[in-house]
Design a protein around this nucleic acid. Structure first.
Lengths: 238, 238
DNA sequence: CCCAACAAGTACGTTTTCGTACTGAAAAAG
DNA sequence: CTTTTTCAGTACGAAAACGTACTTGTTGGG
């Protein structure tokens, strides 16, 4: 089978952008897999074993401190790759990374990935830009955490998740949304209730469906959008 | 004058860590300068003209969004370098960067810096680790913004500033501390008052002096420390 | 030396979010 | 089909931080 064919079913933006020459360094080493929600990808302080390229689903990157305070600092979906520290020359996971919304994708062993980066300047350039995009997302998470209201932060999160899923369903409990946003579960319930009342979403147990995306964007205001626009600029060039 | 001598007066940790061979790519292009507080280093959306290596002083990296919400996402002092996007292959500033506490250092033109990175793998490795350290700092800022109380965040900031200055004085108004933390000026006043009452700091107009660092560390708890420890690991090796 | 500009102290009602916890409903397990 | 577990809805007082704004010191410029 031609390698070009092997890429046909791949939705991951970074894998798509890899040049034909570079593909030899990556493609043959990819392992396809299904990723269930809650599946652990990286554990803080532990070595990173693989870089995961998602096609579908959303992974959460959660910072944890010594007293077990935790908050999500970014999400990764088909637009990126997990294991940002690998790109920076560090093989140890800093944060907790796990699937928040189940999906599928491919993974590549850490050493193969790092070797490929060492060999190809164009691969380095591509993944550095992806890492830069993630940094921007983290910075804006810091901004939203410090400045936005719960409702705005929830809207921002839903939009980021929606960008990375193929349906309008967000299969998550209020409890998990609360952990990611670093707020009370009850606070999320009330906020979602407000969204529902305004016709922005519909809900049922363990699931939420985006009905009026534009309305949610309006709630999020400028807390949503900058990282997304910047990633586009970085990857699609000016 | 021998280049080794030229490095004698340099306190910047990254410049110190540059190998003798790599020094030729960097050292001759450094321009020594004094940096006054409020001096602008990067403007969001504009090209990054230089990378600044501080010896003394503190630069603030402040994320801004379309509605002018702003918050500090990280600080840079003698342990790092400004212009993280340059290291990631992007020459456009994402955030607003300016001197928060005046000092001195050196700067190098953007093109020279990028050229050096392109030529030397060891330089790339060094600066990537520095960038990774900054990412960790940003992630923990997101954590603190979302989870910590004003008092803890203030303590964290004072410690980070103290780490990067040579004296115990922090020459800043409550107003600027408030902008960086993304809180009310009056809130900072009250919090500092609490610190003063407990003998952690002394204050006068436009200045604050660290008296009991250990006490401030206790207030910050685990919101302070992780990025610092990780940077040490990254730069000093395992 | 005086005054405008700036920094800090203080106040107060309001909003937001928290901590906690109880209840009912839905789904999963047995 | 029943029991157990999980999830969502709701409540309520308390804490934290807010917006605003008035006052009082400093300080540096005119």
């Amino acid at each position: 089978m031609l390698e070009a064919h092997a890429r046909a079913g791949i939705r991951n933006r970074l894998l798509q952008k890899i040049s034909l020459e570079d593909w030899d360094l990556i493609g043959p080493h990819l392992e396809a897999l299904t990723l269930k929600e809650r599946q652990v990808i990286e554990v803080p302080g532990k070595p990173i074993t693989h870089a995961y390229f998602l096609d579908i689903g959303v992974a959460s990157v959660v910072a944890v401190d010594a007293e077990d305070h935790r908050i999500e600092v970014g999400v990764i979906g088909y637009e990126g790759v997990t294991g940002v520290p690998l790109i920076m020359g560090d093989a140890r996971a800093q944060h907790s990374t796990y699937m928040q919304i189940g999906g599928s994708g491919h993974r590549i062993p850490q050493d193969v990935f790092c070797g490929a980066l060492a060999q190809s300047e164009s691969l380095r350039a591509l993944f550095l830009k992806s890492a830069q995009g993630f940094m921007i997302q983290t910075a804006h998470t810091a901004l939203a955490n410090g400045r936005a209201k719960l409702e705005q932060r929830l809207a921002r999160w839903l939009l980021m998740a929606h960008d990375r899923t193929t349906s309008d369903a967000v299969p998550l409990t209020h409890e998990f949304l609360a952990v990611m946003l670093g707020v009370r579960r009850a606070g999320v319930t009330v906020a979602i209730h407000g969204f529902e009342r305004r016709g922005l979403v519909t809900t049922r147990r363990g699931q939420l469906t985006i009905v009026n995306r534009a309305g949610i964007e309006q709630v999020a205001g400028s807390f949503y959008g900058t990282p997304e626009a910047e990633l586009k600029r970085l990857l699609d060039g000016k």
